[in-house]
Write a protein that binds this DNA or RNA. Structure first.
Lengths: 333, 333
DNA sequence: CTGTTAGCGCATTCAT
DNA sequence: ATGAATGCGCTAACAG
């Protein structure tokens, strides 16, 4: 209360001890007599002392910061990854420095530049698409780097996620096994979301194995959303290709597709089957639970942090962790 | 490339100038000859120099950090507020330090304690419910503080949001005007989400004005979710009070309620009307767009930042900004 | 337009 | 179990 910006020295003076002793009490380090500890603690609360991390960091040449670069917060998938990261960080004394790139590598570079000046112990980002500068910043140091969501390329240091190409393949095999033959595809902007593109590629490959192919597709410009999925399915069906199943770029889009079917009087599965990606809660609440693939977003974030913090210095070998996916059978396909 | 941790001194040496000159070039401060600027910049890129913000902050006694405390990231409402905050911060050179409290005042206190050691220029948090310690930390300094979402109490410094009590009142008047008489209520855990409680109180008050009251209610323990809304509506209807309209604690819950109606063969609006709160995208995509109240989440975040940064020192008077709400008529009530 | 001098608040030696 | 001296990397306040 007395002083909004008391320093170690102030506390030391009031407690009648040296600064370093206060520092030790604060950090719970080394042997301190019960007596001094009490004097110090009482001085601390009397002065409302709050340590200055900037000074601490400068003196010890080490931060407790983890830089986190997320493409978006609007897509619920990333908050879930973030929850996993927060869970991994809990109790370690580390703090996340969060930035949102809007799927833009230049934004990512700008944020990273700014974050690097805080000397984070690790950087967590998304995917493998970075600017040259970003790549240099990430590669040059011995700082640990995790690239999340995707494991279809070679990481700088650590990749944690799932194979989206393989997810696409599994989707087509699963649906082909169920007897579907006329595949439609409804997606969103690929240039921003490269993983959606990988799933599409896998889907096409899986179909080719069975001698099948996509009979009609609609790509909605802009990001994925329920509205986009609804509109795009309407557009697709208007083309007249009469698919018996439509694969969506993700669950948000698929839920929109489901709404279109409800509104248009299309009986889902009998008239038209729907398949998504992610396994979001909302899809599983629908009167007909969405058939989809579950990605383990929380786990991706959590695992990444655990690996990063368990080995503070970057190993010579890169590492890839596959968090996998599972088919959710549902009732829409 | 050469050195992952070059300092100002290294750059100065290589460029053949003094440290302060480098510092000025980096910060774009004061008049610098084109010649020196070039020498310095070339040295910087040769060394891959990255400024050390901790040192800068210590020397200048000022950070560019804004502490942001959000209750949750799972509820899409808060990422939207965060987008508003990010938008307000854009181009100002400020960075958010984001923490998630899980609606827990003790978590909030712990995060704030930790954040305060970074000497943020402002703190943005949610609601008026804080621990004594939190309140002391927030009040004592001359640091600016915004409390978001709610304006039904007296803020420490600045409140930005809407009156949830009034939102509840408007809801009951609107529905009463539409002719509804038997009101049901489906909600989620109030102890965590005090604003949902305020809306409920307002709802009851608005009903009382017309001599009406709630005929049946179900509170689902735990946070709001589509699943919770679905389950709770089923429970409510099983009670047999036969409401003609059900007000939900928010849109997530209401969408769940809508799904229950679809699955149970209840024709929405004719058999049972539904009303939400927030105006989320998903609700407006449904075959029958959800009748609800729109809150302006993005604006809340953006406005808060703008006011906070426009007046760096806390004014003597507290200030409250009402971002309002509007009725979305929809087709479910 | 550029440089010199002095810290910012703390933690790491090495003593005692 | 405690303390003294020193410097982390940078910037403010003055010079020139």
């Amino acid at each position: 209360m007395t002083n909004a910006n008391a320093t170690l020295a102030d506390v030391a003076r009031l407690a009648g001890v040296s600064e370093i002793t206060v520092s030790r009490v604060v950090r719970n380090l080394g042997p301190i007599s019960e007596n001094t500890r009490q004097k110090v603690n009482s001085a601390i609360s009397k002065l409302d002392y709050v340590p200055n991390r900037a000074a601490g960091m400068l003196a010890s040449a080490g931060s407790n910061l983890v830089a986190v670069l997320l493409p978006s917060l609007s897509n619920i998938v990333f908050p879930e990854v973030m929850r996993g990261i927060a869970e991994g960080l809990r109790g370690t004394g580390h703090q996340p420095l969060i930035g949102v790139t809007d799927y833009d590598p230049l934004q990512e570079e700008a944020l990273l530049t700014s974050f690097m000046s805080w000397r984070p112990v690790a950087v967590i980002t998304t995917g493998f698409e970075h600017t040259e500068t970003t790549r240099r910043m990430l590669s040059s140091g011995r700082i640990r780097v995790a690239e999340l969501m995707d494991i279809d390329s070679q990481p700088i240091d650590l990749a944690v996620g799932l194979s989206h190409r393989s997810a696409g393949q599994v989707t087509s095999r699963h649906l082909a096994d169920l007897g579907y033959r006329r595949f439609g595809y409804v997606g969103h902007d690929w240039t921003a979301d490269r993983r959606a593109r990988l799933r599409y590629d896998g889907l096409v490959e899986g179909l080719a194995e069975r001698g099948l192919s996509i009979v009609a597709e609609t790509l909605n410009p802009g990001p994925s959303s329920t509205e986009a999925g609804k509109a795009a399915l309407a557009t697709l069906l208007a083309k007249g290709a009469a698919p018996d199943v439509v694969v969506f770029s993700n669950d948000d889009m698929a839920v929109g597709g489901y709404f279109h079917c409800l509104a248009a009087g299309i009986e889902v599965k009998r008239d038209l089957a729907l398949f998504g990606f992610n396994g979001l809660e909302i899809g599983q609440c629908m009167p007909a639970p969405l058939s989809t693939l579950r990605s383990n977003r929380f786990l991706i974030g959590k695992q990444a942090v655990e690996v990063l913090l368990s080995t503070p210095k970057r190993p010579d070998e890169t590492q890839t962790i596959d968090t996998g996916f599972e088919i959710i059978v549902g009732k829409t396909a």
